[in-house]
């Protein structure tokens, strides 16, 4: 559906996007992840045809964005970083203008505007001037604009920035439901969001692709083996004596947290993926350590992300 090939954007001596290639399948939600200034917005501006690429090609639904811009742009709904709204227009008037701009047939315009206003819950705001709307509502009007004409591809640049927690949850639900009918590229620097919404994740840094895969696979292949967090009533020395009896412990340490009076929390990592929780439990019972808590330490996308982009930074 979306095919990006060897995309390069050069500003003088600075390469904002460096040889980026990826594909997005129909009906897929791709999370586009990277620290600020990694080239996310630049890439999105090139995919939507707002900016030209120095090198490379973007194909949307079989149409090259630079050779057949009108046909390609017809398939795209774009919500840029800052919602492209006219402050002096009323919500309904603005969306009606967008429906004309996107060449929705004259007879369907009214129904289309009503449909997107209903979907984004802005119907009760339709006669307000956009400059009087809050940031959250402006963002909704911006997304409503992207949905007009029901384009097959949605490009959303940080759609949840500036929303309150309630609106963020609602927005994520909406994006997920849109993902059933649309192909979506969603940029974000919030990892939880990408994890919760996206089918696949593309991580970029300094304009270069670092990895593209499902969130689970990225965590599994790059996160290493998972460990166990345990809370017992033994101090460091006593716990150390006990834990050394287990042969397959690769690493353990006391965690900097305060689980309670006389209690200590430890992280334990194992060299194999065997069922270590049962062995740990039996060990505590044998050495009369009282076990208060035990849970798996899940490496999050966040850890992976910091690890990977951090590595890149130190390499430079």
């Amino acid at each position: 559906m979306i095919k990006v090939e060897n995309l390069v954007k050069q500003y003088g001596d600075f390469r904002a996007v460096d040889d980026l290639s990826f594909e997005v399948e129909k009906g897929e939600i791709l999370g586009f992840l990277g620290p600020n200034g990694a080239g996310k917005s630049t890439t999105m501006n090139m995919i939507t045809g707002y900016n030209s690429a120095t090198e490379g090609n973007v194909t949307i639904n079989g149409f090259n964005v630079y050779d057949e811009p009108e046909k390609a742009k017809r398939c795209i709904g774009y919500l840029p970083e800052i919602p492209p709204v006219y402050p002096d227009m009323r919500v309904k008037e603005y969306l009606f203008f967008c429906s004309q701009l996107k060449e929705v047939p004259r007879k369907e315009r009214k129904a289309e505007v009503d449909r997107v206003m209903d979907l984004l819950h802005v119907t009760h705001m339709q006669n307000k001037l956009i400059k009087h709307l809050s940031k959250g509502y402006r963002q909704r009007v911006g997304l409503a604009q992207a949905l007009i004409g029901n384009p097959e591809v949605l490009i959303l640049d940080e759609p949840t920035v500036g929303l309150d927690p309630m609106q963020i949850t609602w927005m994520r639900e909406l994006i997920r439901s849109l993902g059933r009918e649309h192909t979506i590229i969603l940029s974000s620097h919030i990892l939880f969001e990408v994890n919760a919404v996206c089918d696949r994740v593309l991580i970029i840094n300094h304009g270069k692709k670092i990895v593209i895969d499902t969130p689970e696979n990225i965590i599994r292949t790059l996160g290493g083996t998972s460990g166990i967090r345990i809370v017992v009533d033994a101090d460091r020395e006593k716990f150390g004596r006990s834990i050394s009896k287990l042969g397959n412990v690769s690493q353990w340490d006391e965690l900097e947290e305060n689980p309670g009076e006389g209690l200590h929390a430890y992280s334990v990592y194992f060299s194999d993926e065997a069922e270590n929780r049962a062995r740990l439990f039996r060990l505590c019972a044998a050495d009369s350590l009282t076990l208060y808590e035990m849970n798996a330490i899940q490496k999050t996308l966040e850890d992976v992300f910091i690890e990977m982009t951090g590595k890149e930074d130190s390499a430079c």
Partner: peptide, 14 residues
């Protein structure tokens, strides 16, 4: 200035 050019220049109008 308002970044609304991102709307009009990504619409299917040349």
């Amino acid at each position: 200035k308002q970044r609304t050019d991102q709307l009009i220049f990504t619409s299917p109008v040349s």
